[in-house]
């Protein structure tokens, strides 16, 4: 079973890398112009193309690139002359920290909010929480980010608006610099998770087995946490996996907005400087991450839900 999934995983990764390679290379724009400038002679361009193997067919180039990928070589940027893998590896910890912090904030808030709303479904607390999360859900990250910067950095001046301190330098400063970006990124996700959990819990709480648990004289607390939450947690786990795409998209904006030196920022910068290989490397890194996380989610899913495990 696991083996079959691994094979599927590999196929998906192959298709994703191939399509992104082809698509990025088919787009108009000539890297030689970027490197040599508009005034360069046709001969110089041709020579550069040969040097960079740009004169070879697309599939050949893809296979070459794929071969490099296996050995961890994603090519070297034409623009910055930095190996792509190196550039990504340098930036990855920032993005990972941001993602993990945002997820933790989102889940840490979503579970109590979702549970509190579901428990008092239809009452005032539920209506307030539901409305709030609906509002958060509808706030684009860059709008939320700008507003939070305006409040905490510009007006209150308690948190930095931009900048990044690595963990290795100072943990306290690191946490300060990641707090605002992570909250901005996590809030929208929190709303998504909380709404999902609420809906799911309300449905679960109407199941016969919950009524029977009440009939057995179990306390509401026990019923909620031991009986109802676990079946509902299953859809939450799936949502975490599926929402990763949206979250990664968010990091691109957040890193730009808060000036964080992460992968998203690198990709945006590379896009502006037409640094194809770096963009390609970034896209592949994100796709692989997405696919791997969802693969892990599937495994967790099976672990949490016995119905799937035995299917």
């Amino acid at each position: 079973m696991i083996l079959l999934r691994l094979v599927r995983l590999l196929v998906v990764l192959l298709v994703v890398t191939f399509l992104s390679y082809v698509l990025l290379n088919l787009l108009p724009g000539d890297p030689t112009t970027q490197i040599l400038g508009l005034s360069a002679s046709e001969e110089a361009r041709a020579q550069l193309r040969a040097e960079l193997s740009l004169d070879q067919p697309l599939t050949v180039r893809y296979l070459g690139w794929l071969g490099g990928l296996v050995t961890g070589d994603l090519g070297t940027s034409y623009i910055t002359s930095v190996p792509v893998a190196e550039a990504l590896a340098e930036r990855l910890p920032v993005t990972l920290e941001l993602l993990v912090a945002a997820q933790l904030i989102a889940l840490g808030l979503a579970v109590p909010v979702g549970v509190a709303a579901a428990r008092r479904a239809g009452r005032t607390l539920d209506q307030v929480l539901t409305t709030l999360s609906f509002g958060l859900l509808s706030t684009p990250v860059f709008v939320l980010g700008v507003v939070l910067i305006l409040i905490f950095a510009v007006k209150l001046q308690v948190l930095p608006a931009t900048g990044w301190t690595p963990i290795s330098l100072d943990l306290g400063w690191n946490l300060t610099s990641v707090l605002l970006p992570a909250v901005t990124l996590g809030c929208g996700q929190m709303a998504v998770y909380a709404r999902l959990l609420r809906t799911d819990l309300i449905a679960t709480l109407q199941e016969d087995y919950i009524t029977l648990a009440r009939a057995r004289g179990l306390s509401p607390r026990r019923i909620l946490w031991r009986h109802a939450l676990r079946p509902s947690a299953i859809s939450l786990v799936t949502a975490v996996g599926l929402n990763l795409g949206a979250l990664i998209g968010g990091t691109v904006i957040i890193e730009t907005l808060f000036g964080l030196p992460g992968v998203g920022r690198l990709i945006v910068d590379s896009i502006f400087s037409r640094d194809y290989l770096t963009v390609q490397g970034g896209v592949v890194l994100i796709s692989v991450g997405y696919v791997l996380v969802n693969f892990a989610v599937d495994l967790v899913y099976a672990a949490v839900d016995p119905r799937i495990r035995h299917a």
């Binding site: 998906v12 795409g245 998209g249 896009i271 037409r274 970034g282 696919v291």
Partner: peptide
Amino acid sequence: LAFPSLVFALAVVAF
């Protein structure tokens, strides 16, 4: 679904 859509949109629009 595995494609990072926003990143992809950025690249396509930029190029």
